[in-house]
Design a protein around this nucleic acid. Sequence first.
DNA 1: GTCTATACGATGATAGAC
DNA 2: GTCTATCATCGTATAGAC
Lengths: 220, 220
Amino acid sequence: MRTAEQPAGDGGDKPWGEVTPEAARRLLVAAVEAFAERGYHATTTRDIAGRAGMSPAALYIHYKTKEELLHRISRIGHDRALALLTAAETGGGSASERLAEAVSAFVRWHAERHTTARVVQYELDALAPEHRVEIVKLRRESDAVVRRILADGVRDGEFDVPDLTGTTLAVLSLCIDVARWFNSRGHRTPDEVGALYADLVLRMVAAPRGGDPDRRPGQK
Amino acid sequence: MRTAEQPAGDGGDKPWGEVTPEAARRLLVAAVEAFAERGYHATTTRDIAGRAGMSPAALYIHYKTKEELLHRISRIGHDRALALLTAAETGGGSASERLAEAVSAFVRWHAERHTTARVVQYELDALAPEHRVEIVKLRRESDAVVRRILADGVRDGEFDVPDLTGTTLAVLSLCIDVARWFNSRGHRTPDEVGALYADLVLRMVAAPRGGDPDRRPGQK
DNA sequence: GTCTATACGATGATAGAC
DNA sequence: GTCTATCATCGTATAGAC
C-alpha cells in the first residue's frame, strides 16, 4: 500500500521528502525544531533562518510569512496521521485487529516524530483562520476513522462501548499525548509504546468474555 | 480533610485565594490567561500588566521576573494536583474505588481548570532550571501515588497490570490531555468526563472475571 | 537565490516622580 | 505601590546589491 517515501518526519530516514527545493526543506525542518522548542509565537524568523544556515531575508524567498511555514508543517503532519489511521482501517482483519493497528501506528508516529507531532498537535490555534478550518476538517476525518472501527467492533460483538463519542475522543487523546511525554522520561522505543497502548485500548473497549454486552457491571 | 478554600483555579468561585495582596493575585490570574492563550515565551509583560489593569512597571513590584509568575502558577497547580491524588489514595476503599476517585478528581480538575492546567502541564520547559527540578519532584510524587494504587490492586487481585510503569504513565497521560481538548469540542461537564474516564481506566487495569490473573490472553 | 542594510514597532526590565 | 518615561535589544518584513 505504501509505494513512496513516507513524509512528515523530523529526524528519521528521509523525512519531509516532498518539500522542495532543498533550501525550503531546510527552513521547514528548522521551523519544526524551533516551534517545538519555544512555541510558534515565540519563535523568531531570525531563529528559523539561523538554524537553516541562512540570513533572515532568505526565509521570505521560500515562504510568504511565518504562518505559511506552520501551515505547511501542520498540513503534512495531519495528512500523514490520517493516512496511518486510514491504512489501519482498510487493512482488513477483525475490529480488534484494526483498532490495535490504528492505535499502535498512530502512537508510533507520535513517539518517533514527537518533535513534529508537538507542533502539529499543539499549535492549531496559531494557524490563520482559513488554514485552521482546513486542518480541523482533517482532524474530524481522523476522528471518524476511529469511531467507525469502534462501531464495527460493537456491531460484531467484540467491543462494549457505552459512550462512543467519548471513547473515540479518549482513545485519540491518549495517543496524542505521547507527543508530550515521549523522550522526557524513560527508555522505551516507539514500538514498545505502540504495543502497550494497543493493549490498553483494547482492554478499554473489550466486550466481557462470554459475549452478552448487557451483562457488564454498570459503572456509570 | 479540606478546611480552607481550594486554590489553583482559573475562573471558579474563589480561585487563587492564597495569592496576596490582591494586585499580585490579579497579575497572576492575568498571567495564567495569557500564558494559556499564547504560551509563556510569547506572552509579554505588557500584556499581563494590561490584563490586570496596570502599567508594565507595576508587575515588577510584585514579581521579580516574568519567570517568577510562571513558577508561582506551576507550583500552586502542581501542589493542588498532588493533593487531589493523595486525597483519593488515603480516602479509603478498595483499590478500584481509590483509582476511580483519583482519576475522576484529577480529570475534573483538568477540565474545570483547563486554562490553568494548560500552563501547568505544557510550560515546564519554560521554568528556570532550579524551579524545574522542584516541579519535577512534585510530578514524580503524583506518579508514585497512582503507581501505588495500581500496585495495591494487583496485590489484592483486583487489577491485572503487566507493565506497571507504562500503565501508570498512560493513566496520568490520558487525564492530563483533558486540559488540551476540553471545551474545544463538545458539551460535556467536568463531572461527566471524570466519570467516563474513571470507567475507561478501570477497564484498562481490571483483572479478568474469575480471579486468576495468569489466565489473561497474552497480548504482548 | 542569497546577501547586507534597514524600517519601524515591540520587547523585558529599570529609574525616578508622585 | 503605581505611574510615566526610557534603555538597549530584538521582532517581522522589505529593498536593493550581487
